[in-house]
Amino acid sequence: MGSILSGAEAASLVRALPGVDAVGLEARAAGLSTRSVKTTSKAWAIDLAISMIDLTTLEGADTPGKVRSLAAKALRPDGDAPSTAAVCVYPSMVAVAKEALAGSGVLVASVATGFPAGQVPLDVRLADTESAVRAGADEIDMVINRGAFLAGDLERVFHEIKAVKAAAGDARLKVILETGELATYDDVRRASWLAMYAGADFIKTSTGKVGVNATLPVTLLMMQAVRDYRALTGVQVGVKPAGGIRNTKDAIKYLVTVNETLGDDWLRNEWFRFGASSLLNDLLMQRQKLKTGHYSGPDYVTVD
């Protein structure tokens, strides 16, 4: 959906957002982390988490062989475990991934717009996006212009997101805020709303390429933003924490937070994703443990 707001309107709405109390936000996240999810609930949550993963490889060393191996793992992670939601690659690898996943329900997501820094001219970022879509990407993970955001040029950030949204066409657009670089919760809230006003289908925490990636308080704050945005506009937006979520325990904390902040409507991979690579194997090991009753090990799940 295209935005009906002008850049100036969006910027002024975003600037007027109320502040976030950091202590209170972190206390709520810590409280949600104490939920105890066991037995049948745990099994259910593990399968749900697997189905929400954007299985990711974003390395300079990525090759078609590596991407095919990842795609095979995404399709059939382990026995009767569900497929992941998508594989997430650089634009140059989209065609390979698309071919490997053809006919399956697993989507191809591509980072674009000069990922991860985004410090290239807008026309290059748009061309990057268009080429990923042409190669068959179902979803585009763009980065926002943090430089412009931190310099206070919210209108520019808004217009750039709108332009990428247009370039992405039918592909769903995930807007990476890079919350580790925005640093304050107030700015995370502002960036979340700005991205939604500009037409984001998903808001995503991080590239995974900076020091601080997804944290539970930041993701909780973004969940509150999408909840409030739907209440205001009727439009539902997804959330994707990415980077740093490596084990089942952490993944379940995020799902509990979705459950108690957004509810059922977001507990599907259409609306919630994990950007992760090593998380999948931990989920699979925990899954085996629940099935067999004894602990699994890294040699009982496949490397990818």
């Binding site: 109320p18 502040g19 976030v20 109390d21 202590v23 209170g24 936000l25 206390a27 709520r28 509150q224």
Partner: peptide, 11 residues
């Protein structure tokens, strides 16, 4: 009226 509403509700 200028309270951080989500955190106030928690409080």
């Amino acid at each position: 009226d200028d309270a951080p509403i989500d955190q106030a509700v928690e409080g």
